[in-house]
Amino acid sequence: MTCDDFQRSYLEGETTADGEAHLRGCADCQRITPELDVLRARLGDPAVWEPAGPELRAQVITAVVSAAGSSKVSRRSRRWRWLAGAAAALVVAVVGASLFLMPDRADGADWDLTLYANEVAPSAVVEVHGWNTANGTHLRVDVEGLAPAGPNEYYAIWMSSDSGEHVPAGTFRESGQIESWAGVTRADFPRVWITLEPDDGDERLTGETVADTPGW
């Protein structure tokens, strides 16, 4: 009996004297049998077989095409903001500088917020745009100048209330535009902040703050 024969019959659930003899003398098959057990068990897992809806592919492509369009708008918006800031700087330097600090109010966000970065990430620029929804808050977080998280860590976004309740509002690993959600409103959870968390399977808030809402 070959290894292929043994492994195939093992997956089929067949137990023969030949198979048992092969297994006793074959280190490769001894090593792979636990994985064959996992494979056989997973073949009965409904999650493996549940089909995605037939419309999902089209929805994904529509969402991406839409995002591609809005990112062009966003880039134009940033360019105009920069030009407006530069022009203003020629007239009144102080006013011009303040324009650069204003969040980009693209796409009709209900509120915008610029987080201040602390000494952990002094060059980071974090702008948060929020949309109030029936289920909470849709967040778009634009992050620049933040070093990529290490292989065993990630950045976490939080919304917190005045009384110190903290609600997770998304994770990311590197600078860029992050779309996320929180099941609470900014009215009740006014603090938006970012921490660097260890990626150890422990979901508690244990990391250090890298950017926070002014005044917190």
Partner: peptide, 30 residues
């Protein structure tokens, strides 16, 4: 996986936590 965790947390939004409390974890392991 990360997005699923985020959505799981979102759906568990009624469970708000304090700094030293457990945050809702996925019912399945990595």
């Amino acid at each position: 996986r990360r997005t699923a965790i985020d959505l799981y947390r979102r759906e568990s939004r009624h469970t708000t936590v304090s700094l030293d409390a457990e945050i809702v974890a996925l019912p399945t392991t990595f």
